[in-house]
């Protein structure tokens, strides 16, 4: 049943990566801003779980809701305090600001909590295993897949059938024209940041769930995964981001199995080289959005 195990692992990893990528693209699609601070929303949620678990008696489900809310709030606040004032004026300044926000949040945790990793209390479900179709797998994996499916369905409905969702899609297509419809620019952008942070918070639960600990640099890997997955899938398409997440999960698992042991430490480099090569052939990603400006010559 090695194949069954591989399938479930890949689906679970791919689901997590799809959520990671989706959160980044929500903001990118509208602002065309690559938000380097995105990984830190994952970190904020992780530390919220640590603090609530270690210092308060609240039940685990409250912890999780608060953690997700904290990530969404942080995302919104970074937009309100930093990005909003910079983004209209210069693209590079906005990019560097997002990097500065990333450095700021990381070092705030270094300074006020600790450079060392902290253990996070999780409900027992995260360490149990179950058997599906003869495959023994951590319950965590199944939860990841299920949560992702529910979220993707919810977001699809939101984007398709609510006026805010329509406005967000319109803004990703033609931002100024959307404002001409009376849609407040700040409303759409704030909402994009909140959804982005919300997804980062959900990702954090499962990300932290794998190691049951959180450290100041925990956000970096999700950020890189989001980069790769969105670039593979297409930076201008929500569907593309999800597809990119699953493809990345598959690629990662294949490389993990096929690379000889001596080369496994180069896995990340291989991943990135594949991405770079892929980009050179198809800079718009697997799924092309409306926006076409990626390649010069």
């Amino acid at each position: 049943m090695i194949f069954g195990e591989f399938v479930i692992n890949t689906l679970s990893l791919g689901s997590l990566y799809a959520l990671v990528a989706l959160g980044l693209v929500f903001v990118y699609g509208i602002l065309k801003l690559v938000n380097f601070a995105y990984g830190e929303y994952v970190m904020v949620a992780g530390y919220s779980m640590y603090i609530l678990g270690a210092f308060t008696p609240v039940p685990w489900w409250v912890t999780m809701i608060v953690a997700v809310a904290m990530a969404a709030l942080t995302s919104y606040l970074t937009e309100l305090v930093a990005f909003r004032r910079v983004r209209q004026k210069s693209d590079n300044a906005a990019l560097v600001t997002s990097f500065a926000v990333m450095v700021l949040l990381q070092n705030a945790v270094l300074l006020f909590v600790s450079p060392r990793a902290r253990a996070v209390k999780l409900p027992s479900a995260f360490s149990e295993s179950i058997t599906i179709l003869g495959v023994v797998t951590p319950l965590r994996n199944v939860l990841t897949i299920a949560t992702t499916l529910v979220l993707l369905l919810g977001l699809t409905l939101l984007m398709k059938y609510t006026v805010l969702g329509i406005a967000m899609r319109a803004a990703a297509d033609k931002f100024t024209t959307t404002r001409l419809m009376g849609v407040q620019a700040n409303l759409v952008i704030s909402f994009a940041f909140i959804i982005s942070g919300f997804l980062a918070g959900v990702v954090s639960i499962f990300w932290v769930g794998r190691s049951a600990s959180v450290d100041p640099l925990i956000g970096f890997t999700p950020l890189l995964i989001a980069f790769i997955a969105t670039v593979i899938g297409g930076m201008n398409s929500l569907v593309g981001a999800v597809a990119g997440g699953y493809v990345y999960g598959l690629l990662f698992n294949i490389l993990s199995i096929t690379l000889p042991a001596s080369m496994i430490s180069y896995r990340d480099a291989f991943m990135f080289m594949i991405v770079i090569l892929f980009l050179l052939l198809r800079p718009e990603g697997m799924i092309k959005g409306n926006y076409t400006e990626e390649r010069v010559g």
Partner: peptide, 23 residues
């Protein structure tokens, strides 16, 4: 090939190249 890319994709690619060099 890197110089052919623009915008976000260019930024991410140069970022990825740094990671490759670092690895």
């Amino acid at each position: 090939p890197l110089m052919r890319l623009s915008n976000a994709v260019g930024v991410i690619t140069l970022f990825a190249t740094l990671i490759v060099i670092h690895v």
